[in-house]
Amino acid sequence: MQMSAVRTAIAEAASAVVLPVDAVLTCTGYTPDSVNEPHFFCGEYSVEFDRAMRRGLDTVELTCRVLVGLGDDKNAQQVLDALLAGSGPASLKQAIEAAKGAPGEDALGGAADDLHVMRVQGYRWYEHQGAQYIGAEIIIKIIGKGD
């Protein structure tokens, strides 16, 4: 797998969410210098190589973050809760897993074999480039051919 392509495809998939407020979720496949909130981005990842012989399969655990501004702490948390829901128009899980493709198709437009949004963690205040946000981490398991 080429992680740049994987991260870009995940950010594209995440951008399909429809927020419960008059705003658009901005998304990047990399950790940005600054964010235009609300913002989703792909952060650090770990790779377990050679899960099958001859570079047949790698497993990646990708940590993504979503950050929401603090104009109103209650409304910000309601938006974040909608983004972290398991389903619904604002669900990042639903939007990202839609990029799996149909049964038998590669995920993320061919960038991976499969993916699964495993969990949400770290629901808390985040500081990014000196600004405070409410946010959380989304952990995605991705499998694909070793390169």
Score class of each variant (00 low, 15 high):
Val117Leu: 14
Asp147Ala: 12
Tyr126His: 15
Trp125Thr: 11
Pro103Arg: 14
Ser15Met: 04
Gln77Met: 04
Leu108Lys: 15
Lys74Arg: 07
Met1Tyr: 11
Asp72Ile: 06
Asp33Lys: 06
Ala85His: 01
Lys74Thr: 09
Arg119Pro: 05
Asp106Pro: 11
Gly86Arg: 06
Thr8Ala: 11
Trp125Ile: 14
Ala52Leu: 10
Thr59Ile: 09
Gly104Tyr: 01
Gln78Cys: 11
Asn36Asp: 13
His116Glu: 12
Ala136Met: 04
Gly43Phe: 04
Leu80Arg: 00
Val68Met: 00
Gln77Arg: 01
Asp50Tyr: 10
Met118His: 11
Ile143Tyr: 10
Arg55Ser: 12
Val117Asp: 08
Cys42Gly: 03
Glu97Ser: 01
Asp22Thr: 06
Tyr30Cys: 10
Gln129Thr: 12
Val47Arg: 12
Thr28Pro: 14
Tyr123Gln: 14
Tyr30Trp: 10
His116Asn: 09
Ala23Met: 03
Gln132Phe: 11
Ala112Asn: 08
Gly110Leu: 07
Ala14Thr: 06
Gly144Val: 04
Leu108Glu: 07
Ile140Leu: 11
Leu67Ser: 00
Leu115Gly: 10
Glu37Gly: 00
Gln78His: 10
Ala85Thr: 03
Val35Tyr: 10
Asp50His: 10
Ala111Cys: 11
Ser34Asn: 15
Lys93His: 04
His116Lys: 06
Ala11Pro: 07
Glu105Trp: 03
Ala82Gly: 00
Gln2Met: 07
Arg7Tyr: 13
Leu108Gly: 09
Arg124Trp: 14
Cys42Pro: 04
Gly43His: 02
Val21Pro: 03
Leu115Cys: 09
Gly43Thr: 05
Thr31Leu: 05
Pro103Met: 12
Ala11Asn: 09
Glu12Trp: 15
Pro38Met: 01
Trp125Val: 13
Ile96His: 01
Arg65Ile: 00
Leu115Lys: 10
Val18His: 13
Ala52Met: 11
Tyr45Ser: 13
Ala102Met: 10
Ser91Phe: 06
Gly146Asn: 09
Glu44Trp: 12
Ser46Thr: 14
Met1Val: 10
Arg7Trp: 14
Leu92Gly: 00
Ala131Cys: 11
Ala16Val: 05
Val60Trp: 05
His39Gly: 02
Leu57Gln: 08
Leu57Ile: 03
Tyr30Gln: 13
His39Asp: 02
Asp58Ser: 11
Ala76Tyr: 00
Trp125Leu: 14
Ala16Thr: 08
Gly88Trp: 03
Gly101Phe: 09
Met3Gly: 13
Ile10Pro: 01
Val18Arg: 15
Tyr126Pro: 07
Ile139Leu: 15
Ser46Ile: 14
Ala112Leu: 10
Cys27Gly: 03
Ala9Val: 12
Arg55Pro: 08
Gly130Asp: 09
Lys93Glu: 06
Ile143Trp: 08
Tyr133Gly: 06
Gly146Ala: 12
Ile140Arg: 06
Val18Ser: 14
Leu67Ile: 02
Leu115Asn: 10
Ala112Ser: 08
Val17Asn: 05
Pro38Ser: 03
Leu67Tyr: 00
Gly135Ala: 02
Gly104Glu: 01
Ile96Pro: 02
Gly88Ser: 01
Gly71Met: 00
Glu37Ile: 04
Ala136Leu: 04
Gln132His: 13
Ala95Ser: 05
Ser4Asn: 14
Gly122Glu: 07
Ile134Gln: 06
Ser15Gln: 11
Val117Glu: 12
Pro89Asp: 05
Thr28Cys: 10
His128Ile: 06
Gly88Glu: 05
Glu137Ala: 12
Glu48Ala: 07
Gly130Glu: 09
Leu57Val: 07
